[in-house]
């Protein structure tokens, strides 16, 4: 009897912090302020948010998880949107921002109104907000490190960059060039802007390809690998090792090549489900947890041996994805402590 009581007491003690945590945020409302929805990554991001958010609401963890997207990807529009969310009395606003600094005014207003602001992917620099950032530079560098291992003899590289003038593009490219500087057996023979879109990448690569020497590998930023493959095929050139970016069409193409010729590469990007990580971080802050202001998003990397399972779980036309649970989010937070 005594033993049973003790067990029950221990079980209760163990369960208590968790249920207390749930109770404290059960009446809290979280809003997502999103600046853009016009590509498959953002669509997947919104879907993950809706899925995990609805479940959290149904489970009584939070009272609401509403997503709002601006139509025009304009800073002014998103600033106005954030002001509306303040007036609507949300307890936390999760932001994927159109600009790192231009929204700071609106974010400060939200903080001053006692609202928790968590920015992710497109982060804001306002100190009162939390930032869940991506180490894009490391992502670029990882590509070269993989190549250095794969082809120690080195070779000529074609670099496909993103949208000119966007900070993400500068960071990934800086990482790639840093990697090349440390591995001088590689040389960037050409560089084009693919705007993270397969058709733009295909066009740009098709243009520069005739003037290039034989290419050993293509370093990319995601959303451009399949387009690059199409361009090489159309030009009748041998297809080099193309780093992929977790898009369904890229993974599917890779799988086809792998089955046909044993083609080897790797794929790396950010899971769109990072929006759910931001949601849990906001929930934890509302719960009174002490969360570091700067967190880093882990990459989602796909290699030769786990290609099939990742392809199977990736929605047709979507992006390889990971949705976070509360426990996953706590792990990311603990890693940053």
């Amino acid at each position: 009897m005594n033993k049973i009581l003790t067990t029950a007491a221990v079980a209760l003690a163990l369960a208590l912090p968790a249920s207390a945590a749930l109770a404290q945020t059960a009446d809290k409302r979280i809003a997502l302020s999103n600046n853009y929805a016009g590509n498959s990554w953002r669509q997947a991001m919104l879907k993950s948010w809706a899925k995990v958010g609805d479940k959290a609401v149904a489970d009584g963890v939070i009272a609401a998880a509403d997503a709002f997207t601006t139509a025009e990807n304009q800073v002014t529009e998103q600033a106005a949107q954030i002001q509306n969310l303040i007036l609507q009395g949300y307890d936390a606003i999760v932001v994927n921002a159109a600009s790192p600094d231009a929204l700071n005014g609106a974010v400060k207003e939200a903080c001053d109104a006692g609202i928790t602001v968590v920015s992710f992917d497109g982060i804001v620099t306002e100190p009162c907000a939390w930032r869940i950032a991506v180490d894009f530079k490391q992502m670029g560098k990882d590509e070269i490190l993989y190549l250095a291992e794969k082809m120690p003899e080195g070779g000529q590289l074609l670099e496909i960059r993103g949208l000119a003038g966007v900070f993400v593009d500068d960071e990934i490219s800086a990482g790639i060039h840093e990697g090349v500087a440390e591995n001088p057996q590689f040389e960037v023979a050409g560089s084009v802007n693919g705007d993270w879109a397969q058709d733009v990448a295909q066009k740009a690569v098709a243009g520069i390809l005739p003037s290039l020497p034989p290419i050993s590998a293509v370093v990319t930023q995601g959303g451009d690998g399949f387009g690059a493959a199409q361009a090489f095929k159309a030009a009748g050139r041998p297809i080099p090792l193309i780093i992929m970016g977790n898009r369904y069409d890229e993974l599917k193409w890779w799988k086809e090549q792998k089955d046909a010729t044993g083609y080897e590469t790797m794929s790396v990007s950010i899971a769109p489900g990072v929006s759910t990580l931001a949601m849990w971080v906001a929930q934890q802050i509302l719960d009174g947890q002490d969360i570091p202001k700067d967190l880093t998003v882990p990459f989602l990397r796909i290699d030769q041996d786990n290609l099939e399972e990742n392809l199977a779980t990736t929605e047709v036309g979507g992006v390889a994805n990971v949705e976070y649970t509360l426990e996953d989010a706590q792990e990311v937070v603990n890693a940053a402590r």
């Binding site: 590509n39 058709d199 199409q230 069409d249 036309g317």
Partner: peptide, 8 residues
């Protein structure tokens, strides 16, 4: 280009 995309 191997399919329609939202920003094509």
């Amino acid at each position: 280009s191997g399919g329609a995309s939202l920003n094509m």
